[in-house]
Design a protein around this nucleic acid. Structure first.
Lengths: 165, 165
DNA sequence: AAAGATTGAACTGTCAATCTTG
DNA sequence: CAAGATTGACAGTTCAATCTTT
């Protein structure tokens, strides 16, 4: 195992890691400043909207986002105190909980969506050529495939069908 | 600004974000499990070693890692209680603090280094072709350049000179 | 007053323990 | 006991306030 990375490889890895952190931070601060919500808030609200009924059980929400169940619970509880979502008990299975977007949550999502898309476009897509995009897509697919190895169903296939040619 | 991303673009961005999170999580859990330290711990210890004298002032450490000063202070304090680093006052400028690696910190770094490199090789480089590497490097450079716009001196040039052809 | 650093409060995410229902 | 979810304790991070030295 003592095969260390070359200088070139270390430089590439550091650049990749820094790019990732930078992009995440830019998105976070812009969403927070201009829409008053965090990226995790946004992801929850988006997942709720992507559900036809607008009602999702906490566990399923966790599966959609690949979050731990306790993270879902804590985060949804915090969002409820801020009036962004509501929680109600299931009738048919009293262990479960329905999570729904509150009016304020829907408004926040509407405000946040164009900002989110704009920031991704500016900081991620704008500097990339079409060739860069294609290459990034294939790289992401391979790395995710390798890390999957049997878990995390379907999140990768989604990209496979939608890749830029 | 209401120019939303296409489905393809959203899929690419999601894949990229998931890849980043997955890689960071894999590295974190492996380092924690097999070497008993976190990635931030590792970064601090690495930065201390990369300094010839083994002595760095807290502020400079923050500059090396692009961390906030309070983050450095909190993290180094925690590492000190675990016996990984030591802090001493500067003689010439009593406002400053020297940070040095303690013996346990140097041992942890030695243990962690091959694990860190191995994990980066396995989860990041192994799935990539040479073409993927080159493309990722150019993409990272462009995105970092765009986000820099005057700040963060020299972290990008480092890659420019060391890119895989 | 400015620079270097520490501190405390607030928030996020993780792990293990717990509670309730099936 | 297993499944669905909540809770509490803890580490990491940020922000603003503070303290000391220049």
């Amino acid at each position: 195992m003592p095969e260390l990375l070359t200088e070139q490889e270390q430089a590439l890895w550091r650049a990749f890691a820094m790019m990732s952190r930078r992009l995440a931070a830019a998105l976070e601060s812009r969403l927070q400043r201009e829409a008053g919500i965090s990226v995790p808030d946004f992801e929850i609200l988006q997942a709720l909207r992507n559900t036809g009924s607008g009602q999702v059980r906490a566990g399923e929400l966790g599966a959609m986002l690949s979050w731990e169940k306790s993270r879902i619970s804590h985060h949804v509880a915090r969002m409820e105190t801020r009036g962004l979502v509501e929680r109600t008990s299931c009738e048919d299975d009293l262990r479960g909980r329905w999570v729904t977007a509150a009016p304020a949550g829907r408004e926040a999502l509407e405000r946040a969506t164009p900002i989110y898309h704009d920031e991704v476009r500016r900081s991620f897509f704008a500097p990339l050529s079409r060739a860069d995009e294609t290459a990034l897509g294939s790289a992401a697919m391979r790395i995710l495939d390798a890390s999957d190895a049997g878990e995390c169903q379907g999140q990768v296939e989604q990209l496979g069908g939608a890749m830029p040619a």
